[in-house]
């Protein structure tokens, strides 16, 4: 039987922004800022090419965790520095990409593996499924508290690099990567130049669990089925991590793209995010597209959007 739904752009989110949302995150970011980054960088000759050098990187983050990533940067013989920085943030079950193709375009690009991902999971490994509901009754220890900070500190890594133009740093990802794009642009609004977020996850948690049966949101449904009495605590925690609530903090231009038949991250929640953004913004909404978010058509526009704002030398203008 077909589900009949209101047009997604008319949906009203249940998300509420707690009055102390900004203070909650200011305290977390202040605590994170006290932690020395201790960046490490190890060249990986096997993955490097004539045009791009590839490095395995690491840095410290909240709770004493060491976070891994890939750093791909143009060789000076291919393109001279400085380079715009680009943070590529991963989806829920995917491993971070080696952003070599972005480096070929002239970006100094980091693909980060926040806590729980391979190479960053020695001391924190709630698994998949698992991450989304790990300590979901306590905002002070919920998995995404550290996860969001891990992504933000990849920006700090870029800021340690002399070949990176600190005035041109962008962020891009889809699904959970779309969520992390928004969160990073919000929590590092002082640094981020622009962001492109596809099929953003972690937006309107309570809306999403009523709109879809797909994983990962289904993890929350399953958790509440087993522990219905914890619903108020879950609701309270998620308010502090709902990506819609980060949107008003963003000042840079943002490009959002969604699929109107997305059964993983319902389009209603993508619209809710878009409506909450107070920055210069553009929305690409693709009918009949699902969690691909129309990437076939969107990606050329994402590349053009990032190039317009970040001006990499490898992209002709």
């Amino acid at each position: 039987m077909q589900q009949v739904r209101q047009p997604a752009d008319q949906y009203r989110t249940k998300t509420i922004r707690p009055p102390d949302f900004d203070q909650f995150w200011a305290e977390i970011m202040a605590a994170a800022a006290e932690i020395p980054l201790r960046p490490s960088l190890e060249h990986v000759p096997m993955r490097s090419t004539d045009q791009v050098d590839v490095y395995e990187i690491g840095y410290d983050s909240l709770d004493g965790l060491r976070i891994a990533g890939w750093y791909c940067v143009p060789k000076e013989s291919y393109l001279p520095p400085p380079y715009p920085g680009l943070l590529i943030v991963p989806g829920y079950i995917s491993e971070p990409t080696l952003p070599k193709s972005w480096a070929k375009l002239g970006y100094a690009a980091v693909g980060v593996a926040p806590r729980g991902k391979l190479r960053s999971n020695r001391h924190f490994n709630p698994g998949y499924p698992g991450l989304l509901v790990h300590n979901i009754v306590d905002r002070h220890t919920y998995a995404y508290r550290g996860f969001y900070v891990d992504a933000c500190r990849a920006v700090d890594f870029l800021l340690t690099r002399p070949e990176v133009d600190h005035g041109r740093i962008g962020v891009h990802g889809s699904s959970q990567g779309g969520a992390l794009t928004v969160v990073t642009a919000a929590l590092r609004a002082d640094v981020i130049t622009c962001g492109a977020a596809g099929a953003p996850f972690l937006c309107g948690f309570l809306d999403a669990i009523a709109l879809t049966h797909s994983y990962p949101y289904e993890e929350i449904v399953e958790y509440l089925r087993r522990h219905p009495e914890r619903e108020p605590l879950v609701r309270e925690t998620l308010m502090y991590f709902d990506v819609i609530n980060f949107a008003p903090m963003i000042r840079c231009p943002m490009l959002i793209y969604i699929g109107l038949a997305d059964d993983v991250c319902p389009p209603e929640t993508g619209y809710a995010l878009y409506h909450a953004l107070a920055c210069p913004k553009e929305l690409l909404a693709y009918p009949r597209c699902a969690h691909d978010a129309g990437s076939y058509w969107a990606m050329p526009k994402v590349k053009a959007f990032l190039a317009e704002h970040l001006k990499p030398a490898g992209v002709p203008r």
């Binding site: 038949a261 693709y286 009949r288 699902a290 691909d292």
Partner: peptide, 9 residues
């Protein structure tokens, strides 16, 4: 494949 994920699904 159409590139429209909902149609393909």
């Amino acid at each position: 494949l159409t590139h429209e994920g909902g149609v393909d699904r």
